[in-house]
Amino acid sequence: MVSSMDGGAWCARDISLRAQKKFLSRVGGTSSARALVLDEHAAKLLDQFLSVLRERVEKREAEKLVKHVIKAAVKLGVLRRHGQLSAADERALAAFRSKFHTVLMAVVSFCEVEFSYDRGFLQDALRESHQSLKSVVERHLSDKSVSRLAGVFGLASRGELLDSLFAGPLDDDVTKLARMLRKELDRGLL
């Protein structure tokens, strides 16, 4: 398989593995590295999300967004596994998961129920998710990581992007992403 570094196909798993190797070489051991490998379901979801984004934003911007999501998740996972998060941080992460779950449920609903799309609701839910996550990230990660996450949520909240996804007929990639999200939500994994 050709990795994304060789100019071949871009893949969430490749980026995840590179981020894990780089970060863990500084803070963790080999058992931590094995525990953080991006699972197959998450990799497929991120790859489908990337396919959806590539149709709507510049390819490089889409890839950068997914890469930043992976890096932040890896870094927070390492901090959590090594007991570096306080009780307040854990509560903030739980609030983030709850708010982001609302975002995912809304996305699925917009795809399953005609004329249910509400841009304002989704933008508010994304903003609240970002604020919950930002409170943890600011205390533990670099300013660069905080800025990257702001960029991720900024792009994801763009009205034009959201309208292109959910206003009007849905394209096959968006429908496939919604089905994948529904499956993971039903399994309790998201």
Results as ranks from 00 to 15, higher is better:
residue 3 S to P: 01
residue 4 S to P: 01
residue 8 G to I: 05
residue 8 G to H: 11
residue 10 W to E: 07
residue 14 D to I: 03
residue 24 L to K: 02
residue 25 S to I: 04
residue 26 R to Y: 06
residue 29 G to D: 15
residue 32 S to R: 11
residue 33 A to E: 12
residue 33 A to Q: 08
residue 34 R to M: 13
residue 35 A to W: 05
residue 36 L to D: 01
residue 38 L to N: 00
residue 39 D to C: 12
residue 41 H to R: 14
residue 41 H to F: 03
residue 45 L to E: 02
residue 47 D to S: 10
residue 47 D to M: 06
residue 48 Q to N: 11
residue 52 V to Q: 00
residue 53 L to G: 01
residue 57 V to P: 00
residue 58 E to F: 05
residue 59 K to T: 14
residue 60 R to L: 14
residue 62 A to L: 07
residue 67 K to T: 12
residue 67 K to E: 15
residue 68 H to F: 07
residue 69 V to L: 13
residue 70 I to R: 07
residue 70 I to F: 08
residue 71 K to W: 03
residue 74 V to C: 05
residue 75 K to C: 10
residue 76 L to P: 00
residue 78 V to F: 09
residue 78 V to M: 12
residue 79 L to G: 09
residue 83 G to I: 06
residue 83 G to S: 11
residue 84 Q to K: 15
residue 85 L to A: 03
residue 86 S to Y: 08
residue 91 R to E: 13
residue 93 L to T: 06
residue 94 A to L: 11
residue 96 F to T: 01
residue 97 R to S: 12
residue 99 K to A: 13
residue 99 K to W: 00
residue 104 L to S: 09
residue 106 A to R: 10
residue 106 A to L: 14
residue 111 C to M: 05
residue 111 C to A: 15
residue 113 V to E: 13
residue 116 S to P: 07
residue 117 Y to Q: 04
residue 117 Y to G: 01
residue 117 Y to M: 04
residue 118 D to N: 15
residue 126 L to H: 05
residue 127 R to D: 12
residue 129 S to L: 08
